[in-house]
Amino acid sequence: MKRTHLPLNGLRVLDAAARHLSFTRAADELAVTPAAVGQQIRALEDTLGVVLFRRTTKGLELTPEGDAGLAALRQGFLEFEEAVRAMQAGQSSKSLTIAAPRDVTEKWLLPRLAAISATDPETRFALVSADEAIDFTEANLDLAIRWGEGPGEYEGEAIESDGLVTVEHPGGSVMTAIGWPGAAGDGATLVRVGDAGLAIDAAAAGLGRATVPEMLAAHDLAAGRVVRVGEAQPSRHGYWLVAPTPQWRQKKVQALVEALGD
C-alpha cells in the first residue's frame, strides 16, 4: 500500500500552537516568526481540508477537528524520537564491521585489532573478506580497506606505508620472482600465488623473491621470517581506509581510523 505523504513541518507547528494556544509563543519555541506559524497552519488546513483553529474573544481556540488528532500526533512524535534514538545508538555502540582483502586482514589488520581490543575489551569486530568490489549497503559495513590510487567514490584516509619492498628467505633464495595479482611484471614469473600475503609466505619458504606492499611485509620482516632485498620502492597505489560519508562520519568509525593509524 502506498504510504500517505505526511506534512511533517505543518504537524510540528500544529503541535506547538495547540500546546500554547498562541501563534506567538509557538513561534518562539520553534525559532520562527508568528507569520510563518500562521502560514504553516493555513497550508496544513488546506492539505487536510479542515479548520484547525478559531479566534475568539478569549483568544486562539482549537476546533474539534484539530483536537481530534492531537493525542495520536503527539504519540507519533514520541515514537519518532524513539526511532531517532535507536538509530543514533548504533554510533555509540562498539560493534564494527570491516571489509578487507584476506592478506591485509591476516598480515596487517588482525594484529592492530588485537591491540585495540586489549585496551578496550568491549569493542567487537566483524570481519568480511573483500578482494574486489565493496558493497556497503549489502554487507552493512562500517569501514573497508582497499588498494588503489585514492579513496575513489568514498571518504577515505591513506594507510601510511613505505611503498613496495622485495623480500626473500633469510638464508637467500633462488632468483625466481614470485607473482601475485597486481604485482608489476608478474607475467614472466615461475611461481604465482593468489595474493601478496601468500607471496610473502612463499618467499619465507624459499621459493623466490616477492615484491609486495611494505605494510604487509612489516610483521614478517620484524619476526625474521623474511629479509629485505634492496630499498623500498615508491608506489602510486596504496591501501586506503574508506567508507561512504554517513559511515565515515560516525564517531566509532573515526575512532577506529585514528586507532589503526597509530
Rank of each mutant, 00 (worst) to 15 (best):
R3Y: 05
H5C: 01
L8Q: 07
L8K: 02
N9I: 03
G10S: 06
V13M: 04
L14V: 08
A16R: 15
A18N: 03
T24D: 13
A26T: 08
E29H: 09
E29T: 12
V37K: 01
Q39F: 13
I41T: 02
I41Y: 00
I41N: 04
R42G: 06
L48I: 05
L48W: 07
V51C: 03
V51L: 10
V51S: 11
F53M: 02
R54S: 14
T57Y: 09
G59D: 11
D67A: 15
A68H: 10
G69E: 00
L70W: 08
A71W: 07
R74T: 10
G76D: 10
F77W: 14
E81N: 07
E81R: 13
E82N: 09
V84I: 14
R85K: 09
Q91D: 15
S92V: 11
S92P: 00
S95M: 07
S95R: 14
S95L: 14
L96K: 01
A100Y: 01
T105P: 00
E106R: 15
W108F: 12
W108I: 11
L110R: 12
P111W: 07
I116A: 13
S117Y: 02
A118M: 04
T119L: 05
D120V: 06
D120K: 14
P121E: 09
E122N: 12
A126Q: 14
V128A: 06
T137F: 05
A139M: 12
N140C: 03
D142G: 03
D142K: 02
L143H: 01
A144R: 06
I145H: 06
I145P: 00
R146S: 11
R146G: 04
W147A: 08
G148R: 03
E149V: 14
G150N: 10
G150C: 11
P151S: 00
G152T: 11
E153L: 14
Y154P: 04
E157D: 11
S161D: 15
V165N: 00
T166K: 02
P170K: 08
G171W: 11
S173M: 04
V174K: 04
G182V: 10
G182T: 01
G182Q: 04
A184S: 12
D186L: 07
T189P: 00
L190G: 15
V191A: 00
R192M: 05
V193Q: 03
G194C: 02
G194N: 11
A196T: 01
A196P: 04
G197Y: 01
A199Q: 13
A199T: 05
I200K: 04
I200M: 01
D201L: 11
A202K: 06
A204F: 02
G208N: 08
V212Y: 07
V212W: 09
M215T: 12
A218S: 13
A218F: 06
A218G: 04
A223R: 09
A223M: 09
R225E: 10
V226F: 07
V229E: 09
G230V: 12
E231W: 02
R236A: 15
H237G: 05
H237A: 15
H237Y: 08
Y239C: 06
L241M: 14
T245S: 15
T245L: 14
Q247I: 03
Q254G: 08
L260V: 07
